[in-house]
Design a protein around this nucleic acid. Structure first.
Length: 260
DNA sequence: ATGGTCGCGTAGCGA
């Protein structure tokens, strides 16, 4: 089973590009982020025509996450537990079933957190703490669990072109990196760490200042696997070519392959 | 060169 994550940066502005990118991915499950539309404006039929089941959790203008799956989607559950007042559409969890097994998949769009002197940074850290609490509970199920998404965290200095340029940014602050490590330290395996780990393998390049042609990117889209998923993890790929297309998202897909 | 680019929605915010 191939499970992908991709921050699409508006599904409606990107539909033609998205259909081409997704055709190339050959994925069974695709977690999308930054839909930037309410559920009734998601182009569901375009993906159903490609053979995907569709679950969405959108909102007007900002955020929004979806799960596309060639296998049945069960127990689709929007919202990260732990704060009933959080109305930002950043989390959708579902169980993907196929003969003889199931995998629980979350599509996540973690808060950016900038500027760090604003309430956005504590919101980011609180969101990550809620995720850690929820992810701890999921481990008790002893199931294959895959937490995929735009984490808005640069894990290591080697995951950005110029660490000095990112010093102090919410994506690279010690608190953000520590929260990401704490999630993994619960017992989750980061798919890229486990199978690749190279420097300079980016998943995001800003639209500004020639970041893509200069390869001034950052690696912020990640896939965390429970032990039962990590046991079956076989490959990790970053679909870098997507950034060179017409009308690209600023992120590219990441795909993990499992013996599931 | 003290900006630069997108998307949403139609000004200015978010990234």
């Amino acid at each position: 089973m191939r499970i992908a994550t991709w921050n699409v940066n508006s599904i409606n502005a990107r539909l033609e590009t998205a259909l081409a990118v997704i055709a190339d991915l050959n994925a069974d499950v695709i977690c999308l982020q930054e839909l930037k539309c309410e559920d009734h404006r998601f182009p569901r039929e375009a993906f159903e025509d490609l053979g995907f089941n569709v679950a969405t959790h959108g909102q007007k203008t900002y955020n929004g996450v979806a799960i596309l799956s060639k296998h049945p989607i069960e127990e689709a559950s929007p919202r990260l537990p732990g704060d009933p007042d959080d109305d930002q559409a950043r989390y959708l969890e579902a169980v993907i079933t196929r003969d003889g097994g199931a995998v629980r998949v979350a599509s996540m769009y973690m808060p950016n957190g900038n500027p760090v002197e604003s309430p956005k940074f504590p919101y980011k850290l609180a969101w990550m703490e809620r995720l850690i609490g929820h992810a701890r509970g999921l481990l008790a199920l002893e199931e294959p669990v895959v937490l995929a998404g735009d984490y808005n965290v640069i894990p290591r200095p080697e995951d950005c072109h110029d660490p000095r340029a990112w010093a102090g940014d919410a994506l690279f602050r010690p608190e953000s990196r520590a929260a990401h490590r704490a999630l993994l330290n619960l017992g989750y395996t980061d798919a890229f760490d486990a199978l690749d780990g190279r420097s300079g393998q980016y998943t995001f390049w800003d639209y500004q200042a020639g970041a893509w042609p200069k390869d001034h990117g950052i690696r912020i889209d990640h896939i965390a696997c429970s032990p039962q998923a990590a046991d079956r993890l076989k490959a990790i790929e970053i679909a870098r070519a997507a950034r060179g297309r017409e009308k690209p998202s600023d992120h590219v897909p990441v795909v993990a392959t499992f013996d599931l």
